[in-house]
Amino acid sequence: MINIISNHWQTLLYGLGQTLLCSILALFFSLVIGSLFAIMEVLPNKIAHTIGRAYVELFRNIPLLVVTMFFYIVIPKFFFQISGFAAGTIGLTIYTSAFIAETVRAGIQSVDTGQMEGSRANGMTYWQAMRYIVLPQAFKIVIPPLGNQFINLVKNSSVLAFVAGFDLMYEGNTIASTTFDTINSYLVVGVLYLIITMPLSYYMRYLEKKSNRGVN
């Protein structure tokens, strides 16, 4: 284990950086895209609602690997050049956005419908009420689950290993297959993943407990 770390720490660190970068980018974009589709789902417009619903159902029911490979293989073949890292990040974004859309939609719907009606009665347009009254409250509800989404993103970003995305898992694979020290290479990789995800997940639990106490 010590050997792997001392000989390959630069590669591992680079991989860890790529993993984090990819996860943060994907979190940001999937939050934006996910919110858009969530709003579409709650719109009174039937077409918008159907499109939002279809997007969410489609990408929640297809494996991440299929989505990612699609972007790695199909897009460059027929449209434009895209690197493994980009393909992986786009795949992750689209996949995660479907889950985030579901969370945000639940958040919006949990905000009392009376609030929307009240703001409309006070002369706000639908969009103003959405923007200033409903969404801010919805996001407050949605923030804690987002932490869990980020943990999922970090774990799921290992799919970049399939598309030469130079993330932690990819670097782990190359180290394992050049040093032949499979177990220790993957142990090191595992510890590095845990260093990111474990404290985060304990912190999320702490937040959840705190907010529960507040409610009670």
Binding site: K155, S158, A161, M169, T182, G190, Y193, T197, M198, Y202
Partner: peptide
């Protein structure tokens, strides 16, 4: 908690190689 916080790919490697 340990298992939940690891990528599944890594668990595949551990069961298949480890």
């Amino acid at each position: 908690d340990l298992i939940r916080n690891l990528p599944l790919l890594l668990i595949f490697f551990f069961t298949y190689f480890g």
